Amino acid sequence: MKAAVDRADDGESISRLLRAWRGRVDARTVRELRGIFPRPGRRLSQAHVARMTGVSEGWYRALEAGRRQDFSERFLLRVAEALRLSEAETLTLFLAVSGRRPPEAGRDRTDLPRGVQTLLHQQVTYPAYLSDGAWNVVAANALMGEWFPWVLRPRPNLMRWALLEPEAREQMLDWEDACARVYLAMLRVAANSNPGNAELRALVQEILDSDADCRRIWAEEHDVVEHRDGHDFRLRLPYHGHAEVRVTSHVLLPIQRTDLRFVFITPADGWAGVPR
């Protein structure tokens, strides 16, 4: 009978990868190890990596052995730095160990991939926009600005507009069931998925502090919604002469910036035009 393959020895194991990444670093070139005794040779040991990342050797050994622990984001970033990991290797480490992507540290909110910007602005048939993890609208095409002029205001935020602005309750029909309950359920998922996001926590608190209807819905509902892809909703906008239209939202994640949402809005049920 053929022996089962040990996951620690296969080519996909994070244990195997960590050992390989550690093995390619010459300990003699590591500044943090200069002057320690005994003087390190070429091989970077687990003890060396533990010293470089500020943890015990046993804690780092648990990571390299593939044992599940509560490894913090900060610790994993220190490991990536110590082992001189590339962006793709750091992504692999985070996904394998925590199931999360590494933080988008230091990235300018306006630093958008050129292809994504081009696709956004070449979309001239339907409204489209990009939002970040806290639903700040970071870019929008011209038609989005015509349908929803609020995106042209300083620091536009979808949740803040939809849940707090009086005009949203007039323009989004069946506001409580089709809008507020869905958006609050999305905020609930996001807040629990990324508890360290201070901006997101502040947004949730601002909405609950500012509106009694949102507080009531938040307290009485326990629904969770990850995104609004494929959801239909009814609008009555000045752009359409206040006639009712039904549309569908579509949510995509740009591969270059998965911290962003690419959202575009199309007619529902084959509706082919807009009343003006």
Rank of each mutant, 00 (worst) to 15 (best):
A185S: 14
D223A: 15
R234T: 15
S56T: 08
T90S: 12
P38L: 02
P149A: 09
V225I: 15
F75S: 05
S193Q: 15
G35C: 10
L203E: 00
S193C: 13
L173G: 05
Q117L: 15
S86C: 05
T125W: 06
A198G: 03
E81Y: 04
Y239T: 03
M159P: 07
F233V: 02
Q256M: 09
R22Q: 04
I36T: 09
R22C: 03
H240C: 14
P127M: 10
F37W: 11
A96D: 06
Q46H: 08
E64S: 02
D177C: 08
R236P: 06
R61E: 03
D177I: 10
L120I: 00
G230E: 13
A8F: 12
W150P: 01
S56D: 06
M172N: 13
L44T: 06
A20K: 13
V204E: 00
T53V: 13
L252Y: 09
V124G: 03
R257Y: 00
G196H: 12
R107S: 06
S13D: 06
L173C: 10
A4M: 14
L77R: 12
F148V: 02
W218S: 04
M1F: 08
G41P: 03
D232F: 12
T53E: 05
P267L: 04
M1I: 09
I217Q: 07
A272T: 09
R28N: 07
V138N: 00
W218D: 05
G54Q: 08
P195S: 08
V263H: 04
R114G: 03
G196F: 14
G196M: 13
G35A: 08
S13Q: 10
R234L: 14
A27N: 02
W21Y: 12
D174G: 15
R107W: 05
I36D: 07
A185L: 10
A198R: 14
A142I: 01
P40F: 03
R24Q: 14
V247M: 13
L203D: 00
N194G: 04
A27K: 04
G230S: 02
A50I: 06
A212C: 01
G99T: 08
A128C: 03
R16P: 01
V55F: 00
L119W: 10
L158T: 11
D10K: 05
A178G: 14
E12F: 13
L17S: 11
A268R: 06
D132M: 01
E226L: 15
R24L: 10
Y60D: 02
L187F: 11
L252T: 13
L143M: 07
L208I: 13
R160H: 10
H222D: 15
E81R: 15
L77P: 01
I14D: 02
R236S: 13
A134L: 00
T53R: 03
L85Y: 01
P40M: 02
V263T: 12
N194L: 12
R28Y: 04
A128D: 00
F233G: 01
R114Y: 02
A20D: 11
H242K: 14
R7H: 08
A202W: 03
Q256N: 05
D26V: 07
Q69T: 11
L143F: 00
G145Q: 07
